[in-house]
C-alpha cells in the first residue's frame, strides 16, 4: 500500500515470469536452450490463439466456454477436407475457421438478441458442438491428412514454428484492432460500462457480435492448427482448453468483469502457463504435484500482479 507510483501494466507478471524462468534455468540447464525455447513457443501457440480470441469476449464482460468443443468440431471439419489429393489446403483451413466463426456468431446472437447470460449460451454451445464433432466424424478420428495440411502444425519459417507465426499474427492484429480502431475502443467501452456506452451511441449488440464471432473464428483457427499438428481431426480433442485460455487472459490482467486488459497481457499469461507446463515436465515433477503447483502458480501470479498495481 506504500506504493503510490503507477506500475506499467503487466510488470508484475513479467517479473513473475522472469523469476520462474530463471529458477527453471538454474534447476535444469536444458531449459534455456534454443531447442527448448522453440519448443516452448510452439506449445503455447494453440492456447495462445484461443486466449487472444477469448480476450475479446472477456473484455466485453462475457465468457466463452465453448472453445474446447469448437476446437474439436472445427478440427474434424478441417480434417474432412484435408485428405491428400482432394482440395487445396486453403479449403480445409477456411472451412475450419468459417465453422468456428459461425458457431461464435450463434453465441453472439443468443447473447445479444436472445438476452441470455453468456455462461449459459456458451455452455449450450460447448455441449452441442461436442455432439456435432462426434456426429461429423462418426465418433472416430479423421486421419490420413495431406502433408500440405500437416505442415501448418509442423513446419517452421526462419527457425520459428509455423503455429507461433500464426499466434504472432493474430496477436499483433488484435492488439492494433483493440487499441487503435474505433470498434476496438468500443469493446472496452461496452465492458467498462454497458449503459454508458449505449448512451454515448455505441452499438453494444454489434460490438458483442463482433467479439463472439472473432472468438469463434480464432477457435476455428486453433482447431485447424491442432488437427494439423496431431495429424488427425479428433472429436474428443480440446476438452478443458477453454479454461487454460481463460486462465491465460486473466493472468494477463484482463478483468473477468470486462473493460480492462488486453492482448499483450494475454500473451504473457499464455507464456506463463506454457513455462509452467514445460518446466514441470522437464523437472519430471509427478503428475499429482504438477496440478497442485500449476494452481498455486496461476493464483500467485495474479496476486503478485494485482498487488504491484495497487
Amino acid at each position: 500500500m506504500t506504493k503510490t507510483r503507477k506500475w506499467p501494466p503487466q510488470l508484475g507478471l513479467a517479473i513473475a515470469l522472469a523469476v520462474l524462468m530463471a529458477g527453471l534455468a538454474a534447476a535444469r540447464p536444458g531449459f534455456i536452450t534454443l531447442g527448448n525455447l522453440v519448443n516452448l513457443v510452439r506449445q503455447i501457440s494453440i492456447n495462445g490463439i484461443l486466449a487472444v480470441g477469448v480476450t475479446y469476449v472477456l473484455l466485453t464482460g462475457g465468457v466463452d466456454l465453448s472453445l474446447g468443443s469448437l476446437v474439436a468440431l472445427t478440427g474434424v471439419i478441417a480434417a474432412t477436407f484435408a485428405h491428400p489429393g482432394e482440395y487445396a489446403v486453403v479449403v480445409p483451413v477456411s472451412a475450419g475457421i468459417a465453422a468456428g466463426a459461425l458457431c461464435g456468431a450463434i453465441n453472439g446472437v443468443l447473447v445479444t438478441r436472445g438476452r441470455m447470460a453468456p455462461f449459459v449460451v456458451t455452455l449450450g454451445m460447448m455441449t452441442s458442438a461436442r455432439g456435432l464433432a462426434l456426429l461429423a466424424s462418426g465418433g472416430r478420428p479423421v486421419s490420413n491428412l495431406s502433408t500440405a495440411f500437416t505442415r501448418i502444425g509442423s513446419g517452421d519459417f526462419a527457425g520459428i514454428p509455423a503455429p507461433t507465426w500464426i499466434l504472432l499474427a493474430v496477436a499483433a492484429a488484435s492488439h492494433v484492432f483493440l487499441r487503435n480502431m474505433r470498434m476496438g475502443r468500443h469493446v472496452y467501452a461496452v465492458g467498462g460500462n454497458e449503459s454508458a456506452a449505449r448512451a454515448s451511441g455505441v452499438h453494444v449488440n454489434k460490438v458483442k457480435m463482433v467479439c463472439y464471432t472473432v472468438c469463434g473464428a480464432m477457435a476455428g483457427l486453433a482447431g485447424v492448427v491442432l488437427a494439423s499438428r496431431i495429424t488427425t481431426g479428433q472429436p474428443n480433442a480440446g476438452i478443458g482448453y477453454e479454461l487454460d485460455a481463460i486462465a491465460a487472459v486473466v493472468i494477463g490482467g484482463t478483468s473477468l468483469n470486462g473493460g480492462t486488459g488486453g492482448v499483450s497481457g494475454t500473451i504473457l499469461g499464455a507464456l506463463l502457463i506454457g513455462v509452467i507446463n514445460n518446466g514441470l515436465d522437464l523437472l519430471n515433477v509427478s503428475s499429482y504435484y504438477q496440478q497442485v503447483i500449476k494452481g498455486v502458480i496461476i493464483v500467485g501470479a495474479v496476486w503478485l500482479d494485482r498487488s504491484k498495481k495497487s
Partner: peptide
C-alpha cells in the same frame, strides 16, 4: 489418453 497432450509431453522429454 490425449494425442495432443502426448505430443507436447514427448517434445518436453526430448528436450530433457
Amino acid at each position: 489418453w490425449d494425442r495432443a497432450k502426448a505430443m507436447s509431453l514427448m517434445e518436453n522429454w526430448i528436450q530433457s
